[in-house]
Design a binder for these strands. Structure first.
Lengths: 240, 240
DNA sequence: CGTAGATTTGAATGTGGTCAATCCGAGTGG
DNA sequence: CCACTCGGATTGACCACATTCAAATCTACG
């Protein structure tokens, strides 16, 4: 764990611009700016290391900055009344966070690093100003928000599924698509989240997730060792 | 049914401006324009009657106009591969439809009137042009999209619930809040959707919905007669 | 009045939840 | 190096809730 954190800080020496960023291809902010690194430099002010368990923001916090994940994994959730939590999603490098806060100028959900992570910060007032000056940026931002709504709706489809099998399968396929890395495209992925979180997100008990993993392995759909998962039979996984 | 349709057409004689619209208070487009009816008149081009079962748009259709429900109810859904459908939501007067299509310029979901309805059309190119000319409109539209993302996330919380009781209860409370009408605020609401659709949306079987309604009635939470529902015990409903 | 579709109800089945014990791996300290 | 601990993961047994299939009603509407 200690050397992992070190590796991450090495990835992002202070002052590094976005041009050499390992997440550049997947980066939402980069797409937003038409991959114009000069413009990017104007809206991304800093890059912060977040330790495992650290919160980027809480429910009710005023919206100051949007966040883009550069490395690591972030979990978003809503803590309903009596300590009851609902996990809303997992966010990987390139993903943007906080855009649900623009409407009310305060965060309706919260975000927590579930492993050591690096997160870029885009102060929203700055972005707003830059949008007024840059119509294409404005337009791209609209498209980004709309796309997010579409993605949410797809997620709802997953949760609308009746059986546990399809929920987990869809979720795993989804994760493997979103990680842009080479080893992940080969089906190899290391889950940053606990079975607990995964289950909560999918509306299933932790024990069910565990049982599903072992059954999927027995059926040859994937192989699993703790949090290390290797997807094997894509067609059959998709068929669920 | 026939006289209902007649009543609706009477509500909206051709050429009527937004100022006298019965849904004005709840109307998203009105909020968007700062309740400036002149501006509204420039982005809302027409008002169409849709019969029960008519589709406003299908998956894959190019984005031409956004829609705002003026009267009636619209169901959105995604028809996954082999005729398998997932109901994404129900939309009541004032709600906007189609904003998930801006990202890709084509609709990722489809929309169907589930009863005779009146829908206002906002051609998107027109709206885009008007936004460039009217910064506050631009800003409001951003807030609208963000708010929609926040609302989707709340919906995910409902689906993340484990037990059927809480899902139905939350959904009913949600519906009763969204209808702005006086009788609805008194807990009286007439469901436009079938048990089938309701079940599909909540990830439950139609029969389960039916059983829940009768049990809720036995427990004094509400009274139900077909699609006519009267919420009685708000506190206990919320407690689920 | 009769039909088609929606809804309710019943009985049997099974999937997933709960509770509890065990196991495993990483980190800690002797 | 080993024993210990702690949190996460796995597994088993049992049970409850929701699904499924089927039949019976009910309702809207021709």
């Amino acid at each position: 764990m200690k050397e992992k954190t070190a590796a991450i800080t090495n990835l992002t020496p202070p002052g590094t611009s976005c041009s050499g960023c390992p997440a550049f291809k997947a980066c939402v902010a980069a797409r937003l700016c038409g991959h114009d690194t000069a413009l990017l430099g104007r809206v991304v002010t800093r890059r912060r290391l977040r330790r495992k368990g650290e919160m980027l923001y809480c429910v009710g916090d005023p919206l100051r900055t949007l966040h883009v994940v550069q490395a690591g994994s972030i979990r978003t959730g809503m803590s309903t009344c009596e300590g009851d939590v609902q996990v809303l999603g997992f966010h990987v490098p390139g993903d943007i966070l906080g855009i649900d806060a623009i409407g009310e100028n305060s965060h309706p959900s919260d975000a927590t690093a579930i492993e050591a992570s690096v997160v870029c910060e885009l102060p929203y007032p700055l972005l707003e100003k830059q949008m007024r000056a840059t119509p294409p940026l404005q337009r791209e931002f609209l498209r980004l928000l709309s796309g997010e709504i579409a993605r949410e709706k797809e997620l709802m489809c997953v949760l609308g599924q009746r059986n546990a099998d399809s929920r987990l399968a869809t979720c795993l396929l989804n994760l493997s698509e979103r990680y842009g890395r080479a080893d992940t495209r080969a089906g190899r992925l290391t889950l940053a989240m606990s079975r607990q979180d995964l289950g909560n997100h999918l509306g299933l008990a932790m024990e069910t997730i565990s049982r599903l993993f072992t059954r999927f392995q027995e059926e040859g759909l994937l192989s699993v060792a703790g949090r290390r998962v290797q997807l094997l039979d894509y067609p059959r996984l998709r068929a669920l």
